[in-house]
């Protein structure tokens, strides 16, 4: 050992620190490089149409829902949780909101509040059942998803199947400026909570090592519920914007958001099992990457089945290369 220190002039700790720093630097920039490469390649293929200002506005609109839900989902995934019910609960939140505002004539803020309450309720059911009943969040969220899908079908049937969203009332949520302001505010709040408060730090600590966190005396149960609470609020907000964009609420509303979140998570380099390397920016970079990819490939004239093949290949590739096989733990990569 002393020989090595003499030869290199460094001790083992310093060597490991340098290696770790190099890796961290690489991990920080690789998702951005991936996004930049995607944009550059698709810009060339689409002959510049991808970066036309009007299309950039489209891209903002297209990734808006995924981005908002991702911000909340970051807290859940940071502690190693998972929630497959966000799409269906988002649909139910939309249905309740439109019912209260259109059918009952209640003010828009009440409808928004109801959407958030629905989102929070569904998320908390997953959180509470997984923590207190010691059930896998994956299983609980599938149950909630199934229940919400049923409620959505029954509810939309009772309300007239394809329920029109009156754009004269909800039109404000289609305003680009409103969307940008909302997104910026949400990013600022979630970033602050995630990086600067004990809530975010505890979530990452739980994801890193649950036992150590518990031994440290940190309130695991309470923080897990905080995570689902924040995600529920984000789902409720996303629901109002999504229904305004779609112009109607149907039995399919919200379906599929959960898969977009997972893809954003993988492409952004968010660690699947949570932990200290979880970053809010990873979710946003992932959401942007998948949106640019989908948008660009359609503009390029690629058939949808091939778009899905590309997404699938990319997804598998990212997972394959970002999985640290030495300690069987996911690490941040692209």
């Amino acid at each position: 050992m002393q020989d090595i220190v003499h030869e290199t002039g460094l001790d083992i700790d310093e060597m490991l620190n340098r290696k770790a720093k190099r890796r961290e630097l690489l991990m920080t920039f690789l998702p951005f490089c991936g996004l930049a490469l995607t944009v550059i390649i698709l810009s060339v293929v689409t002959k510049g149409l991808l970066l036309k200002p009007e299309n950039l506005v489209n891209i903002m609109n297209q990734c808006f829902t995924t981005a908002i839900v991702s911000l909340g989902a970051a807290f859940v995934y940071a502690h190693g949780g998972i929630d497959f019910s966000v799409g269906a609960s988002c649909g139910v939140a939309q249905m309740v909101c439109i019912f209260l505002v259109s059918s009952k004539g209640l003010p828009l803020p009440i409808g928004m509040l109801a959407a958030i309450v629905i989102g929070v309720t569904c998320a908390l059911i997953v959180g509470m059942a997984s923590y207190w009943l010691h059930l896998q969040p994956f299983v609980v969220s599938l149950c909630v998803r199934s229940a919400c899908a049923g409620i959505l079908i029954a509810g939309t049937n009772a309300l007239g199947k394809n329920i029109r969203v009156p754009l004269e009332i909800f039109g404000i949520f289609n305003n680009d400026t409103v969307k940008i302001i909302t997104l910026v505010i949400l990013i600022a709040i979630t970033w602050y909570l995630f990086e600067k408060t004990s809530v975010g730090k505890t979530e990452k600590a739980i994801g890193g090592n649950r036992t150590t966190t518990w031994q440290s005396g940190l309130p695991i149960g309470r923080n897990i519920l905080y995570a689902y609470l924040i995600m529920g609020i984000c789902v409720g907000i996303a629901a109002v914007f999504q229904m305004s964009r779609a112009g109607m609420v149907t039995s399919n509303s919200g379906i599929g958001i959960e898969f977009n979140i997972l893809i954003a998570l993988a492409l952004g380099g968010f660690p699947m099992s949570g932990g200290a390397s979880a970053k809010i920016r990873s979710m946003l970079v992932g959401a942007l990457t998948i949106t640019f990819l989908t948008n660009g490939l359609i503009i390029a004239g690629l058939a949808m089945e091939y778009v899905n093949i590309v997404k699938g290949l990319l997804f598998i590739t990212v997972i394959a290369v970002s999985y640290d096989r030495t300690n069987l733990k996911q690490v941040v990569f692209m």
Partner: peptide
Amino acid sequence: QFIETSTGTELESVVESVCVAG
């Protein structure tokens, strides 16, 4: 251009993209 609105892909997003494509 045949386009399927797969799960999670909004119809509106597809419409925007094909319109930009001309």
